[in-house]
């Protein structure tokens, strides 16, 4: 009698084998993690990206030194404006993100500081991450309403720091 009771108990505890599902999930997870190693740190939401018809995918974000170029405050609105005033002091032309993710703004008179930042970043890429010098690029995220002078100054600063490869960030236009 007692033997029969034991048998029923064993039959009730039916379990689905979850391990193949976990395997699948981990594979997917790894795939997406690898894909997501794009520029995520320095994408400043205050920059209204310009659009271009003939743009191509940025395949490898390795070695990209990101410099955000801001428009005047009058051209910003809503969320972008709030974020900008909260993060940067007034009159900021260029914004970069340090290794820790902290945003730093540079004003028009701080071109030397911007040059220093770019050369520091370049050395970091070259010595610590062992990226070839030819692959170190300036990723210029210029606001569509920013005066060209600011972008050109950022390019000049990069050239002074020894970075001659420039990549213009754009959005695809429909």
């Amino acid at each position: 009698m007692s033997k029969k009771k034991l048998n029923t108990k064993e039959e009730v505890s039916a379990d689905i084998n979850l391990s193949p599902m976990i395997d699948c999930c981990f594979l997917l997870l790894i795939f997406f993690v690898v894909n997501a190693t794009q520029i995520t740190v320095s994408k400043d939401p205050s920059v209204g990206m310009p659009s271009a018809v003939s743009c191509t995918e940025l395949k490898d974000a390795k070695g990209c030194i990101v410099v955000n170029v801001f428009a005047d405050v009058e051209n910003m609105k809503g969320n972008a404006l709030n974020k900008f005033t909260a993060t940067y002091p007034a009159g900021t032309y260029w914004g970069v993100a340090e290794a820790g993710g902290k945003s730093i703004g540079y004003t028009s008179s701080q071109t030397q500081e911007l040059t220093d930042f770019i050369s520091k970043q370049k050395d970091l890429f070259k010595n610590q991450q062992k990226i070839e010098e030819s692959k170190i690029r300036l990723y210029l995220r210029g606001d569509q309403n920013a005066p060209w002078e600011r972008s050109a100054t950022a390019i000049r600063c990069a050239a002074a720091a020894g970075v001659n490869n420039i990549v213009f960030g754009t959005l695809p236009s429909k």
Partner: peptide
Amino acid sequence: ATSLVSEKKLDISIP
């Protein structure tokens, strides 16, 4: 996060 990454680049090099 990956589907949000839609930023592209321009294929222009500045010598």
